[in-house]
């Protein structure tokens, strides 16, 4: 049995539980309003633009790096082996004003840049039954 600490686990709310369940089923989906069709992230109980009903809708997974950092220090346990590594805020193609956080994979942290194209991948999250999206560099 591993003695390594686990990385933080998500604690879903009633609003966000469907998002996490969807990832478990292998689908990266965020909320979209059934009335005004605006995308929404993070998860809420109703559309912030019109108060309408929200439904999960899959994203293509393609997006652009809006900003990124390189963690040289682990803010929480469970990431010591990865250091240094890049985390980005990604603007999905479908909703460029939203920012979704995730690790950048498939590229050296020195080569990560704002504006870079990325594609979401769903990976197992250590320490529990959750899956999380990470972002792989490319295709351009």
């Amino acid at each position: 049995m591993s003695t390594k600490p686990n990385p933080p686990q998500p604690e879903p709310s009633l609003d966000s539980a469907p998002y996490w369940e969807s990832l478990k089923q292998g689908t990266f989906a965020i909320q979209r309003c059934t009335a005004c069709h605006q995308w929404q992230f993070p998860m809420l109980g109703a559309c912030r633009h019109c108060g309408g009903t929200l439904a999960l809708q899959p994203l293509s997974g393609k997006g652009t790096i809006y900003s990124f950092i390189v963690n040289h220090r682990a803010a929480a346990p469970g990431f010591e082996d990865l250091l240094p590594y890049a985390v980005a805020l990604v603007s999905p193609d479908e909703a460029p004003k939203l920012h979704i956080p995730g690790r950048i994979v498939g590229i050296a942290h020195e080569d990560v840049a704002i504006g870079q194209r990325v594609t979401a991948e769903i990976v197992d999250h250590p320490g529990g039954e959750w899956k999380v999206p990470v972002f792989r560099a490319g295709p351009t």
Binding site: I69, F79, I100
Partner: peptide
């Protein structure tokens, strides 16, 4: 981690 940070925390963010 719940609330706003539930999305970033699994990435150590």
């Amino acid at each position: 981690v719940g609330g706003d940070d539930q999305y970033g925390a699994p990435h150590g963010y």
